[in-house]
Structure formats: structure tokens, C-alpha cells
Design a protein around this nucleic acid. Sequence first.
DNA 1: GCGCCGCCTGTTGTATACAACACTAGAGCA
DNA 2: TGCTCTAGTGTTGTATACAACAGGCGGCGC
Lengths: 227, 227
Amino acid sequence: MNLIPDALPTARNRFDRMHTVLRRRICLLDYPPGKRLSEEDLASEFGTSRTPLRRVLVRLESEGLLQSVHGVGTFVTDVEIEELEQTYELRLELAELLGVLGPNPPDPTLWDRLQLLSAEVRALAERPDARRFAELNMEFFHEFHGITSNLPLREICERLFLQTSRIWLKCMAAAKIDVAAEVRVFADEIDEVLRALAIGDVRSAALIHRTHISMSYKRMRIASRNL
Amino acid sequence: MNLIPDALPTARNRFDRMHTVLRRRICLLDYPPGKRLSEEDLASEFGTSRTPLRRVLVRLESEGLLQSVHGVGTFVTDVEIEELEQTYELRLELAELLGVLGPNPPDPTLWDRLQLLSAEVRALAERPDARRFAELNMEFFHEFHGITSNLPLREICERLFLQTSRIWLKCMAAAKIDVAAEVRVFADEIDEVLRALAIGDVRSAALIHRTHISMSYKRMRIASRNL
DNA sequence: GCGCCGCCTGTTGTATACAACACTAGAGCA
DNA sequence: TGCTCTAGTGTTGTATACAACAGGCGGCGC
């Protein structure tokens, strides 16, 4: 009996593993926008040839995270401020829809995970760390999308989040926004969401989430106005 | 001076060409759900080796139109009725958003194209043809999404349309829905939309569109209840 | 007759060598 | 000195051969 059946070295699993790892690196700014990636280096890191790796890169390119240019290189994409604005406007509306379309009854598993996250964020408030903040933020969004049973909506929200969050992180860092303050706001959001979910008010949880997306974006815009 | 600069035999153009052609075949049911595609045959048809073709297949797989299984084949995906329901619910909301987020001022080019489409649909009503209907429907959706200037929203709507329309067409055919009647409804929708756009009421145009998506889906569900 | 096992065929996945391309540095020349 | 052209280097894109895999068919044992 295999305890970790998903770890079988099948082609699909290798693909998913590489995809997840690279996407994470891009979204957490380990590979900042504009960085050139070496197909050869990455391939050797994952212990494969360029061929399977390129498959992953094509996928990431179709997700808008990478761009390959023949004879030049493969680059992590940046996002223009105008496109970012449009994406955020859309994300606000979609965040609201999360509470409208197929709202899931408060799942005890989801509840537990969010509560765990809340504690971790509170702990982070003591010793702020931008990267850890990015990680927890990513995890929170992922879990939060579980409030809808509408899979296509969940996927789209996830996708748009992964496309924009890294730009948001980058701008925050550039504008020297106080990480500690941002962490506190984040912790408050989770607790507010938990209170709403506690009484089964999924719609309100979604609206709280929407509010925080909007406000964090606005704070970022204001702070980076002077750059 | 090159009059058709986009036709340069660059890698990017080849990729886009193959991608568009295959996507079109899938969405117009030339390749019906469940059909197995042969990488070798397709590669030779496009005059390339399997390598560049596989790049296209990976893209189509990430768009949810194909699925490759090692050692078995590459298949056109089908969609379960439950997932279809969820996607339609989402599409209704997004259709409404088309009129809310960055509504474009009625573009004369868009206007002309829609009017041309209206004429073609009217002509089609005389001699109904399921495939031609599918083509015009696809073209209409593509043009209609031009009413918003919000690019991410446009892309998402396009993507969801391409994922569901072929299933809708398949069900319509299976339920033996009267194509002529469906064409007349379609023609009416375009004219209604044109009337709304004529007075610059983009929001109403979007709501009309939403209504027709909803009703055509409901008709399909009712008709295929007896299958 | 029935069931199991192994070969055989066709498919997708992988490795590798090579072509096409973009950029750079430096030589040659005005 | 400044410009241009060319060779060189490193990158992505392509072709091809081969490995890994799934399924079906037929033979073999029972």
C-alpha cells in the first residue's frame, strides 16, 4: 500500500508539481516581474529535460504569468497600472458574486483552517515579514474561495488573484508601506469574515472580503502616488 | 512593404493560427466531445512536427477544451450537466457586468458589424443550417464583448462562452430543437441589442443579452428533459 | 468453455541535437 | 571619433528518435 499515491512519479504529477512550484515562486516575488528564467537551469533543477519543463512554461504563459520571446528569453510578466485597475474592478464584482452564487454552508474544515490562519496572522503581527505576509495572504484567498460551490467562479477568482497579488506586493514594497499595519488590517479581515461565517452569513463574508480588496488596493495606489 | 505582416511565418503566428483553427473546430462541433485527436495527423496537416503542435494542445488543455491521457490519446472534453449549470449561472452574472464595468461608448465599427450580422442571421432564417447558426452565434458573442473596455472581463466571458456553447449546440441537436425558431430568436436578440446601443444604453444591451443567454439555456434544458 | 497472462500495437511523454533568432562586442572603415 | 557590418554567443523554437504507458488480442493452462 502506498501512503502517498499522489507522489507516484507519473507525468501528470511531475507537471503539477513543477507548475505549482514555479507559480508560487512568481506570485511570492521570488521571481520578480521582469526576471528572466533559464529553461535549462530550471529543467536541471527539476531533474528533467527542457521538453517537460517547456510544457509547464506554456501553461504559465497562458495564465499570463510568463512571456517567452524567441531568441531572447522567458520573462516574468509585469502588469501595467491601467490593466491592474481593470482587473481590480472586476475582482471586486467577482468577490461579491462569491457570496451570491452557490454559497456553501459554512464548512467546519474551512472554518478550522481560517481560524488557524487567523492565529498565524496574529503571530505574524508581532514580527512583520513581507514574504510570510504574502504566503498567508495567498493561503487565505485560496481557502476563502471555498465559500462558493461554483467551481468556474472559484477558478477565475483564484486566477485573477494570482495575476494581481504579486504586482500589489511589489508596489507595496516600492511604496514602503508599513507591513505591520497591513498585517493588522489583514488579521481584522479574517476575524470579521469568521464572525460572518459563524452566523452563516456567507453573503456578508463576501462583502467584507470585497471591501478589504478594494481598500487595500486604494491604500496601495495612494502610497505609490509619489513614486 | 509587406501588406500582410501578420502572415510572416514566425513561430508566434503559426502557434496562433493552429490554436484558432483547432479551437474553432472544437467549438463548432467539427470535433465533437469525446473525439480522439491524432497528434501525428494534425501535425502533418499543419506541416510541422509534433513538438509545436503539442504546444497548442497544452494551451487548449489549459482552456478546458482538450484532455490528454498518456498512452491512450487526446480527447475533446465533454461537460457534465452540473458543471454546465454552474457555468451558465456565472455567465449570466458576467453578462450583466459587461454593461456595468467600463462600458464602451457605442463604437461605429461594432455597430456596423452587428448590423451586418443581423442581416446574415435574417438571411439564415430562410434556410436554417445548424453549423452556420453556430458560426454566427460565435461571431456575435465575440463582437458583443466589445461593449466593455474591461479586457480581463472580456477574455473571461469569451473563454466561458467557448467552453459551453459547444455543449449547448450538442444538446440542442440531440433534443431536436427547431433550428429555424432558434435562429429567429437570435435575430430578434441582435435587433434588440442594436436598438439599445442606438440610444447609447449599454447597460440595457447587456441585460438583453443576459436574458437571451438565460432563456436559450432554459429552452435547451426543457427540450432535453426527455432524453 | 473459461480465465489469466504476456505480447503487440498505437498513443502520449521525454530526451537530445539542431535550426532560427536576438543581442553584443569588436573590427574595419570613413 | 563615430558609424556599420559581421562574427560570436546565448536563448527559444523545431525535428526526430526513443521510452513509458494503456488496451486489446491471442495463446495457454486449467
